[in-house]
């Protein structure tokens, strides 16, 4: 089994951001996540792709693991790494494989 690329320390950080946004029933709606991602100052088309890759069940909302994927991609993008066109297997949360 491939370990998830989101490290436990990062996951804890992302989880605390997730909780601070007031998830309802353990999920965040798009309108709650959007301003956070926009805060990164990344281009909207990049953020749109980040959303596509992280909303794995395409319900327009992110659960904790999906949110971690989104944050991971945003942080990597801010470090200058390109956002992939499709989600590499190591980035898929173990709970969703």
């Amino acid at each position: 089994d491939t370990p998830w690329v989101v490290k436990p320390e990062e996951k804890m950080k992302f989880d605390s951001i997730f909780e601070s946004l007031g998830p309802a029933g353990g999920i965040l709606t798009g309108d709650k996540v959007k301003p956070v991602l926009l805060n990164s100052k990344l281009p909207v088309d990049i953020l749109g792709r980040v959303w596509e890759l992280s909303d794995l069940d395409r319900d327009g909302m992110l659960d904790k693991d999906e949110f971690s994927v989104a944050m991971y991609l945003v942080y990597r993008a801010l470090e200058g790494e390109p956002v992939p066109m499709s989600l590499p297997p190591p980035l898929v949360p173990p709970s969703k494989r």
Binding site: D45, L47, G48, W51, E52, D55, D59, G60
Partner: peptide
């Protein structure tokens, strides 16, 4: 897989 264009589940589109 999913319809392209006007994906209502993506708040950035």
């Amino acid at each position: 897989q999913y319809p392209t264009g006007g994906s209502s589940t993506n708040p950035f589109l």
